[in-house]
Simulated assay, not measured.
Amino acid sequence: MRLEILPVLGIGHVTEGDDLAALIATAAPWLRDGDVLVVTSKIVSKAEGRLVDVPADGPERLAARDEVLAAETARVVASRGPTRIVQTHHGFVMASAGIDASNVDKTRLVLLPVDPDASARALRAALREHYGLDVAVVVTDTMGRPWRNGLTDVALGVAGMSAIRDHRGEVDPYGNELQLTQMAVVDELAAAGELIKGKCDQVPVAVVRGYLSATGPDDGDGAKVLVRDAAQDLFSLGTAEARAAGLADAVTLADGPGPTPADPAATRRAIEAVVGVVAPGTVFTLVDESEVRAGLIAEVPGWPDGATALVLGSPPAPVEPMDLVRFGADLHRLRVALAAEGIGSALLPPPSGSTASATLAL
């Protein structure tokens, strides 16, 4: 495969209502069927009127920008000082919801297109209907990466090709069947186009030639397939935000054992995790011996169905009233540590005749 990346020069400033297809076709009469048109989302937004007026400077500008950001945000992923990483209503996770103040008048902000896939489809259709061109269109914007410094362009919308090349089920030269490999080819094309578009050169469109021999029979599923479902996202919150969410969950910790038997090793890890922070002399004991455990369970009032393990808790002796208050707090610390290991617990009275002061049923 031989690829060419070609700049589309001479498009000039784009304003609301401009015909992007006409601007591009006029600036690039050399376009061919099968080309991939890589279009910066900013000119799409400008043509579609996705701009808001804000003060040119001062605290009023910051306040107006914050208001716009709040409107474009579906949820906050992470926040550090003035920086906000958010999920947009499209599902994209990016800094400041993609709001941009560059290459635009100082009294305006540019928002992302409402539906980048629809924008890509509309531009592709206009080029086909009015200029007889059968091209793919990728609408792009710049994003950071969670584990790497630097930015790169990615696809927000696409029409005329698949966003992902799925290699699952293919066999490599060593006979191994590929199980997980799905390449986000439109992101790769977006990054390739950015190499010649740049940020200050006013080249908002690039053409990647040679990747497609022909476009797809239809517009395809768009770039929305690149948005990872929240249930599958292992990094849906920033570190500080995840910690804060965990602390908030600790306040409303459910009282009851989990759906599966508690893992003894995980239970011991939880006990070890709180040893250094509980009151000196406080003891938590996981009862390992099955016969002993069965005998104690029979003596615990209200033992819940499904619980298979127990931890006995004893405060330091002698016990003063404030020691009992602290013991209650330490019991909750242990319950939170158990929850962090995926182990539910129920706080119960101690077994009859035991020297312990409390029981956790796991």
Rank of each mutant, 00 (worst) to 15 (best):
K199W: 08
A206I: 03
T215W: 01
L189Q: 03
A206W: 03
D249S: 13
E177L: 00
K224G: 08
S213K: 15
E241P: 07
L253H: 02
A231G: 10
G216K: 01
Y211G: 03
Q232W: 00
D249M: 13
G222T: 06
G238H: 06
E170A: 06
E170S: 07
L180S: 11
D219R: 07
G246P: 01
D218F: 09
G169F: 06
I196A: 11
A214Y: 08
A248Q: 02
V251H: 02
P173T: 00
V208D: 01
K197F: 08
E241Y: 01
L178P: 10
F235E: 05
A240H: 09
V205R: 00
T215G: 06
D187N: 09
Y211A: 05
D219P: 03
K197M: 13
N176K: 10
G238L: 05
G210T: 02
G216H: 11
T252K: 05
R168N: 12
A192I: 01
V186G: 05
G220H: 03
L253C: 00
G238K: 09
V203F: 13
D201E: 15
D233C: 15
M183W: 11
G220L: 00
L180T: 10
P173A: 07
T239P: 12
E177C: 00
G193Q: 00
G216T: 09
L226W: 04
V203N: 10
G210F: 11
L180I: 08
Q232T: 00
A244P: 09
A242W: 04
T252Q: 03
